[in-house]
Nucleic acid binder design. Sequence first.
DNA 1: TAGAACGTATCGCATAATGATACGAACGAA
DNA 2: TTCGTTCGTATCATTATGCGATACGTTCTA
Lengths: 272, 272
Amino acid sequence: MPLRGEADADGRGQLFVGSLEKGLRVLSAFLTGEAHLSLSDIREITKLDKSAAQRFAYTLHALGYLHKDPNTRRYTLSAKMLDWSVAYMQSDHLIQVAGPHLVNLHEETRQAVNLSRLVDTDVIYVIRIPARRARLLSPIVGERVPAFCTASGRAILSRRSDEEVATILDRSHLAPFTPRTICDRRSILARIAAARQVGYTIAEEECLPGELTIAAPIVNADGRSIGGVNMSMTTRDWTPERMRAELAPVLLQTVAALSNLQGSRVAAPALS
Amino acid sequence: MPLRGEADADGRGQLFVGSLEKGLRVLSAFLTGEAHLSLSDIREITKLDKSAAQRFAYTLHALGYLHKDPNTRRYTLSAKMLDWSVAYMQSDHLIQVAGPHLVNLHEETRQAVNLSRLVDTDVIYVIRIPARRARLLSPIVGERVPAFCTASGRAILSRRSDEEVATILDRSHLAPFTPRTICDRRSILARIAAARQVGYTIAEEECLPGELTIAAPIVNADGRSIGGVNMSMTTRDWTPERMRAELAPVLLQTVAALSNLQGSRVAAPALS
DNA sequence: TAGAACGTATCGCATAATGATACGAACGAA
DNA sequence: TTCGTTCGTATCATTATGCGATACGTTCTA
């Protein structure tokens, strides 16, 4: 009997602290992309009433998580928010051990290499190594992409149970990013099934025109996926056939090594 | 009259929501470096009683911010925490505009270049460009170092009021990292005063043996610092004198450009 | 096998969060 | 200028909500 679960009238369990959720809702208001939020903006985005928005913004400001411009009276996120990401990065065992392996993979192939984790219906990039001679500023760690239409996502799903895949696809918004995005549920499941066979999967221009991606899952001792490794390249320089021939073997080697390392550890940190 | 301020009996104002603070305290428990925390660990670190720790951990788990290992029953941070850092990165106007300037600075000097912001008594790195041929994995964004003994910190403080500097030093724990760390308050203030004159400052092995750092502040239209740019190198390859001669001019040029850009914007996001 | 430590569940109570309301300042329109 | 609106701030009675003492069951270990 798991902590009364959803058994409560309000659907969240007796132990659920509503105030905490509301406060985090206020912080989440800044995930919309708007940098400077007025109290009214917060009220509108979070659907909290005037007083609640006031109280939580006040509290977050007092704690240093929100900065308040004295002139415009608008709130912005403080750099203190980065503390959470540092703590996460340092706490995730997979990130710690994967680093050198990904660097090796990058040096052997000269392609962009990423490590990702599944959170809800999305894949979140947690390590990013840009392609040779690409931008000096590394791509953003923490970026989200939908699992259903990315190689990493489908690779991770290929080592999850059918039920889990089903519920994730249920919750996913199956909307196309490009003309080549595969949104049909049957086709998605077919791709996942194929990945289950060969151990990796390829996505062709499903998220970004001109981008090819190959990915494979890292699994724990139980065979359940705990993350994914992908490599991205352009349609100018590569074809899926060449990726299968030249990249798939070394990619599989990398995820196999990481999967074996996981076997010894008792606890795999921070899954979805 | 600012929101009743500290005027309340409990010292935090009428509007302060204690439950939110407690919930965030639970998340902060993971900043200690321990990755896997049991309920008892959380209870001990946060000084919350058994029931409170239970409720907040339950809530954070229900919201997806904490992952709970079914076997060990220990909590870990979820990758969802990275959402905050992405939101912050995208919301901070200085980070957006500074990127290309820092890349230029890096390409002209071939040295490691960082952008930092002051939060409380620390400096937080928000952009990091590693030195040529350094590690492929970028240094961690969000890392904190004390303001009092770093070039960036003293550079930022050099464009703050004396009162502000005083209160920040009051709150700082003036402990040495290396034999050369300057912990004496008079000496620190002298360095800051010097930086106020020449526009930059140098720290010699104060944080890390063998590391030299030069830094200069970015200011807004009011002349108040909103961030700092620094460059780091080794004592093997450089001397302070050469840094003054070869690096200071181009560094000052960079921060001047960024400072002017700030002039036009109304609101500078996310100060300390 | 006893005992301690831990996670989980329950429940009555009082505090602490609530939200309606009122106030004042800033802004724009007439 | 003088309205009228909007926004941020402040107050307060009400009670829902978080609180914490307590009890239960399981897992270690001694």
